[in-house]
Amino acid sequence: MIIGIVDYEAGNIRSVVNALKTLRVSYLVSNKQEELSIASKIILPGVGEARSAMESLHSIHLVEWLKTLDVPFLGICLGMQILFERSTERDISCLGIIEGTIEHFAKVNAALKVPHMGWNDVMFSTNSPLFEGIRQGEFFYFVHSYYAPLTSCTIGETDYGIRFSAAVQKNNYYGVQFHPEKSGNTGLQILKNFVERC
């Protein structure tokens, strides 16, 4: 099994790579569809900004491919947000796998400190294989200024002035708003679950 990590200059790829190394999982890092197509699962990391990320994915011709994947996919942080239809972060059309629009926290409550940065708890709403062996209300590390709303695809939620999607799933597409690669052993467990169970 090889995990393909999409390198689109919007991700903290090194942290994800280091986490996979710890798990002794084979991986490849690429921005080319023909190389990534060899992978049995795909991870889309992300730190940065939605419009640049989408523009970058368009420029390396991965948008259509990402929309029609039949292997398990895990989007992290921004990589989860762009599964949705739109982001209000410099108003951009995203992959549209999941219905809904990504909004800014300040729109909810101007007094909230933004970014939402630090460890917050996640309540799981389903028995997703992604959360196998992880207790309800476990803490994960978040850093983000925009959030995904709760939808029928929400499988984990977190409260920061508003309840938002901390994890989503639709068919073979999984996404987490937090950074499993920065969330200690529990975060590693999420990645391990994705590799072994999803």
């Binding site: 090194r14 280091n18 190394k21 590390y141 690669e181 920065k182 200690g184 590693l188």
Partner: peptide
């Protein structure tokens, strides 16, 4: 540090 520690 990045290779061995999984917190920010």
């Amino acid at each position: 540090v990045a290779e061995s520690i999984r917190i920010p």
